[in-house]
Simulated scan of single mutants.
Amino acid sequence: MGLDINNLSGGYAGHNILKNISFKVPDGKIVALIGLNGAGKSTTINHVIGELQPQMGTIALNDVDLIKTPTEFKKQIAYIPEQPILYDELTLSEHLHLMLSAYELDDEQHWQLVEKLLTKFRLEKKQHWLPTHFSKGMKQKVMLVAAFMLERPLLIIDEPFLGLDTLAIKAVIDLMQEQARKGNSILLTTHLLKEATQFVDEFVVLYDGRIRFTGSPHHLAAASQLSVDNLEQFFESIQEELDDER
């Protein structure tokens, strides 16, 4: 089943940013929302995580409706925001224990997975560090560990590679693919199309709050008259269209 967004319209404080968008993130698939700044990517994410109320349309995950049963819906998701959010007074280890407790997961049962993730992101020796000692990239890694350790049916990541080094980017891609193989769904936003073509099953292109295209990297390349290796030029073609409209 997975995530099903149907005829969604919404925005902020009366501003209608999303205009009747519909798309799916099936079980076991990785879907990337892409578009220029202001296209509606983060607005879509904020609707899916329940931060914004739809003006119209529905959002369901495995047949659980976000508006009708928000608690049951949110239990199925793990979310990584674009900017890391950490508590200054909690150590890395305390953050992770708190998250496990919030999801009613058994610490002993899940801590072995946590340790593997900490090692994968080279954080295993920093469990007693406070956030004030972390670089931006390290804070992002903490958020990644906290989300991947939950193994939720839907993982949502807003710009997953922001501030990460090359090894960490590879680790994130590996973990997303592993989650997909387990049947979980992944929805992400990214500007790094070249990297995304390596692992994304489908792109959803947003343009002025509307869906302009939905399809695989190869289909997007063909529709844009580009090679998959040069797909990052897609944003340039959109910008040129915007300039022409002006």
Rank of each mutant, 00 (worst) to 15 (best):
K141Q: 14
A102W: 15
A171P: 07
L118P: 12
K74Q: 05
I186Q: 02
K24C: 10
V228K: 13
H219N: 11
G163E: 05
P54S: 08
D27E: 14
E245A: 12
I173K: 04
I21R: 00
Y12R: 07
L206M: 00
Q83E: 12
Y103M: 02
I169D: 05
P153E: 14
L18K: 14
I156K: 02
V228L: 11
K19L: 09
M143T: 13
H128M: 10
G11R: 00
G57T: 08
S216E: 09
K75S: 01
L18Q: 14
P81L: 01
Q179G: 11
Y87H: 12
Y79F: 14
E115A: 09
F23K: 03
I238G: 02
P70I: 05
I34C: 12
K116F: 11
H15V: 15
G137L: 06
P81N: 07
T44G: 01
A171E: 13
Q53L: 07
K41W: 03
L242E: 15
Y87C: 07
D165S: 06
I85M: 10
D243F: 09
A171C: 00
R246N: 12
G11E: 12
G28H: 05
T91V: 07
P217I: 07
P160W: 10
F203R: 03
K74N: 03
L206V: 02
E202Y: 05
Q225L: 14
H128N: 14
S227H: 08
V48R: 02
K141N: 11
T91N: 08
H47F: 06
I34E: 12
H47T: 00
T44H: 02
L33Q: 01
G163M: 04
I21A: 03
A32M: 00
L96H: 06
I34V: 15
D63A: 04
K182C: 05
M149C: 01
M99I: 15
D174C: 02
F148Q: 10
R181W: 01
A221K: 06
I17V: 15
L90G: 02
Q109P: 01
F121L: 05
R246D: 13
E232A: 11
E51M: 14
L98T: 01
I77M: 03
E108F: 12
E82C: 11
L18A: 14
G14D: 02
A102G: 07
Y207M: 10
L130F: 15
L118V: 11
S237P: 05
D65L: 04
S101I: 04
L175I: 07
T44C: 01
G209N: 12
V228G: 11
K41Y: 03
A221C: 04
Q198V: 03
L187W: 11
E108W: 13
A168N: 04
V205L: 09
L123G: 02
L150F: 08
P26E: 08
E51A: 14
L226P: 10
L105A: 03
E236P: 04
T190I: 10
R122C: 11
L162N: 13
K194E: 13
G183I: 05
G28L: 00
S22Y: 13
L36Q: 05
V25P: 03
L61H: 04
H95R: 00
S42M: 03
D174K: 05
H218G: 09
I156N: 02
V228A: 13
L154F: 00
I156A: 00
L206E: 01
D27H: 09
Q198A: 10
A32H: 05
D165Q: 06
A78M: 04
F148V: 06
S237C: 04
